[in-house]
Design a protein around this nucleic acid. Structure first.
Lengths: 149, 149
DNA sequence: CTCTAGTTTATAATCGTTATAAACAGTTTA
DNA sequence: TAAACTGTTTATAACGATTATAAACTAGAG
């Protein structure tokens, strides 16, 4: 399944004229397989064994390329650095205020919100963003003091 | 009406043991009256006539104090700097992808989303965040090239 | 009015991200 | 295969928002 995703993603890139370099392959693969929401720096550190000479700029450059190709979404929460999420199908995130863990969940479209907003404000609506915040079961049940992902 | 808001906010601060300095008064007043969603730097520049010696750190410090007191919400979008929103009553934001303008709109609670998310993920839900993105009428109708607010 | 803890100021430091220019590599052309 | 072109990576510096620090100051309690 994730192999299919990777192949599809590479095809998407190729067909929009983007070269497939080993670094790009690796970053994409990491994003798809990690099933997490890594920061640019996490990706960089995860791949530095395989690419000892790769620079952070390469990670940022390629994340931008992927974002512009519609493969990756950039998540900006309150904390200092952005997180990057490989776009599979529509899902939302719930984030633990305590340890920072991010869990995906699905919810049938919020199209009506977009419609109302468009009607009230006169905007042409393109997309929306929604997150839920709370405390994960590990943190609320006791002493989970680690800052996860 | 906004006078009431200001007075209430000052009382909230006092009752949680926060000193009311002239700078704090001015920042709060600016946030309430501006009806916009300024960055820390915008607040700083707006008040530098009145407080020529005020430093940016003061703005940041006090925005943090206000946030911790529940008076102000910090909005982190994709762009480099945070925006700050005086909390009146629940509303959402629609943001122009073109010029960055932020318009408020109201929408009856998304409590069911919180409930579903809580049920599916096991989190104790505390809050949620939602924004709509699109193009404002000024930008979609023609040549609004300015980067507003 | 005095005292003190909290606040402001000025400045430097931090850190995520972006810009730059040189070295490099994949692809096309011959 | 070789030369040339173009996009990519690397290394490094620059940038800008935010935070830390320490000294000077002041709101508010008594």
């Amino acid at each position: 399944m994730s192999e299919t995703q990777l192949r599809d993603a590479l095809n998407t890139l190729k067909s929009s004229g983007v070269r497939i370099t080993p670094q790009r392959h690796a970053i994409l693969e990491y994003l798809i397989h990690s099933m997490s929401h890594p920061t640019a720096d996490e990706i960089y550190r995860a791949l530095e064994k395989t690419f000892p000479n790769m620079s952070v700029a390469t990670v940022y450059n390629n994340l931008r390329v992927f974002r512009e190709a519609g493969l990756v979404k950039e998540l900006t929460y309150g904390d200092s650095s952005s997180r990057f999420d490989f776009i599979t199908h529509d899902h939302y995130h719930i984030i633990c205020n305590d340890c920072g863990k991010i869990v995906d969940f699905h919810y049938p479209g919020l199209d009506e919100v977009e419609q109302l907003a468009s009607h009230v404000t006169g905007f042409e609506v393109e997309s929306h963003r929604m997150e839920v915040y709370g405390t994960c079961s590990a943190c609320s049940s006791g002493g989970n003091r680690a800052k996860a992902q």
